[in-house]
């Protein structure tokens, strides 16, 4: 579990993180979202004891990171895949990390195998593609078989198979009861990965909730309807719901403000045949844009 209480970080006059409190629970994948400059990286660095908070604190399993004796056995992190000496081999990189926390060298070969880098273990890390560096970073995070895992943009540079692999991998780590905290800008990817979300903007907490709840709260559910008797259905719905044409060429209607069951009952009691009656959920992206509107640092002109 990760717990932040009143966490604050100033750089000179700039407030990067502002009185931030949240909890990351074990057994779930928690997404960490926010626009650029929202303070995500700074927060992650403070969790790992790399930056000192200006105020408040953040603990991992109830303890300050800096007070952990062999921290790699408690927390594994991948913040930047490029944090590797380019002239050192993948294996040597993991070996010194392992040694520092008394992790046996055999574990190095295990994690190399897990991420599929065994064949290139002796090659210098500087020659790795971004995807391979990413795998090496993941291997480093797994070294100590830690209960808490932090990933910053883990799918960066991975190909579709790698993306699927890491998503399933994070799900499994969570299913094993570990705490998995993932920061990413790829909302369509996060919607499939994270069960819980912590959303920040300008260093402040915007939301901490389940992904489902987050979307439900910020977007309106609609129902997509197709029917051979669309005109009659439209008349019946008039005054009870807001109806619009769908953008698709199949002539479907998009109905706002009522449950699909209501439309189904209405159709059945009037003998109207339905060809489709699908509830449409909002996307994580819509919800995110809705909620972070004010805290985006940098707007592109249209």
């Amino acid at each position: 579990m990760i717990e932040a209480t009143g966490l604050t970080k100033h750089y000179g006059k700039t407030v990067a993180v502002d009185d931030l409190s949240f909890r990351v629970e074990p057994g779930r994948v928690t997404g960490f979202l926010g626009p650029n400059g929202a303070g995500k990286s700074t927060t992650m660095r403070m969790i790992l004891g790399l930056d000192n908070p200006s105020g408040g604190r953040v603990t991992v399993k109830g303890r300050d990171y800096r007070s952990l004796r062999e921290p790699l056995r408690v927390v594994g992190a991948l913040l930047d895949a490029k944090w590797v000496h380019p002239n050192r081999s993948a294996r040597a990189h993991l070996l010194w990390l392992a040694r520092s926390n008394r992790i046996p060298a055999a574990r190095v070969d295990e994690v190399l195998d897990m991420v599929g880098l065994t064949q290139v273990a002796k090659r210098r890390a500087g020659g790795f593609s971004l995807g391979m560096s990413q795998r090496l970073g993941i291997a480093g995070a797994l070294l100590g078989d830690p209960e808490v895992l932090l990933f910053d943009e883990p799918v960066n540079g991975l190909d579709p198979e790698g993306i699927l692999w890491i998503r399933q991998f994070m799900h499994r780590l969570a299913a094993e009861g570990r705490t998995v905290f993932v920061s990413s800008h790829l909302l369509s990817e996060m919607a499939q990965t994270a069960q819980d979300l912590i959303v920040i903007g300008r260093g402040k907490l915007i939301a901490q909730t389940s992904t489902e709840q987050f979307i439900a709260d910020a977007t309106e559910d609609t129902v997509r309807v197709r029917s051979p008797h669309l005109d009659r259905l439209r008349e019946l719905l008039d005054g009870r719901a807001r109806v619009a044409e769908a953008a698709t060429p199949d002539g479907a209607l998009v109905v706002h403000g009522v449950q699909p069951a209501f439309i189904g009952e209405l159709a059945a009691s009037n003998g109207i045949t339905l060809h489709e009656l699908s509830p449409q959920l909002g996307s994580l992206e819509e919800a995110f844009m809705q909620l972070t509107k004010e805290s985006v640092e940098y707007h592109a002109a249209d």
Binding site: G49, W83, L97
Partner: peptide, 22 residues
């Protein structure tokens, strides 16, 4: 300086957070 240049200093401090001993 290469530890700073290549970011491995962060891994070092992540592994041994008291910083002085490494």
């Amino acid at each position: 300086t290469t530890e700073y240049r290549f970011g491995t200093i962060k891994s070092t401090f992540q592994a041994v957070p008291d910083r002085i001993s490494p």
